[in-house]
Design a protein around this nucleic acid. Structure first.
Lengths: 195, 195
DNA sequence: CCAGATGGCTAATGCTCATTAGCCATGACA
DNA sequence: TGTCATGGCTAATGAGCATTAGCCATCTGG
């Protein structure tokens, strides 16, 4: 077999693992399954990746880092708190529509992630949620939003957006951008912001 | 050992299985784990229950039936579409706060449910979502709601409520009833209904 | 042309488990 | 009191599976 691009196989393995973890679940996916998806046998995977658990850890940590990064960028790209919330929601929805599998696995397999990575992921998740809540609290303080509980509002907005990962598919009724925009609207309604 | 109440052990097994499936996942839970939780050995479970898979199937089918039943009752208890939606959302949230474990397992373990039960659960889920969507569409037709997409609104409302199962715990900031009421408000905001 | 690295492979190894078989004590009831 | 059902138990059974060991072909760089 030729060498091909270095890292090529390793990347293919990661992609296959993601797809299989998402469709079958982490524990139901065998190393042989992942190997078959890239045309090799199970044990050969160890020439590229150190084990099944690190495949999961990479997915879950990477997902949280990506979410936090896009949030920071989105919220930093506007001054008005309404725009900040809208852009943050759009980024959240875009991520869940474009990276459905990562989001799916990230939400479902926490119990299968060994420590200390599990706590790492949970901490990042908390950080992410709080950053939305702060935004909502600031909007409320400024009198732009009207919420009874910023925490409930932030949970609601996050959960709505995460749900997108469960049903979205390309070629459906809405494009990713249309979806992001509409969820931005819904979020602003939720926080009582008269558009 | 005395006979105790008939069905007592069987019920305890179901409860333990639910808790363990929720906290560890279906595949990570062994029959020995379930047995230990009720004070017997793994193989003894088979004197009461026919296998691990039926424990899962009962949870998942029962959850969907309960949701559909409470929805029908809630939506049938009012004439005005605003009240119908509010009550349906309240019932949805109440269920997810009071039956967190069922909801958690129901959402996470679909891939581990064997056919034909998996399709049965998915069909009921579709039925449940459509009943919310119809409500929203009717409200929109009557001019009471103002939504760009009834489907997005129904997904959003359902996902918000399902999220409650992930974080709610008794003795927290809100009681189940307070939560149900507030989510009712949020849902009405989402569908553009001026309270 | 050779030496080593790379990345396959098959064959262990050493678990973990659901489920079944077969045994036994107890309690109910004739 | 004897018989039978109930519901425990331990010991298989049989499968699945992550990971490791050890082998070999091919490519690369000298």
């Amino acid at each position: 077999m030729p060498a091909a691009l270095p890292g090529d196989r390793a990347a293919a393995i990661r992609v296959a693992a993601l797809r299989l973890f998402a469709t079958q679940g982490y524990r139901a996916t065998t190393m042989a399954d992942i190997g078959a998806a890239v045309g090799i046998r199970g044990p050969s995977i160890y020439k590229h990746v150190s084990g099944k658990q690190v495949l999961l850890a990479e997915i879950m940590l990477g997902t949280m880092d990506a979410l936090i990064a896009t949030h920071a960028e989105a919220a930093g790209s506007a001054a008005d708190v309404r725009d900040q919330l809208r852009r943050a929601v759009e980024a959240h929805v875009r991520y869940h529509a474009r990276h459905q599998l990562e989001a799916f696995v990230g939400n479902r397999e926490i119990a299968n992630l060994d420590q200390p990575d599990r706590d790492r992921v949970l901490r990042r998740r908390g950080t992410y949620e709080r950053s939305f809540r702060k935004l909502i609290e600031r909007g409320a303080t400024e009198g732009v939003f009207d919420v009874r509980s910023a925490r409930l509002a932030s949970y609601s907005i996050l959960d709505m957006g995460m749900g997108v990962a469960n049903w979205f598919h390309d070629g459906g009724e809405f494009s990713v951008e249309q979806l992001a925009y509409q969820y931005g609207d819904l979020a602003l309604r939720l926080v009582g912001c008269q558009a």
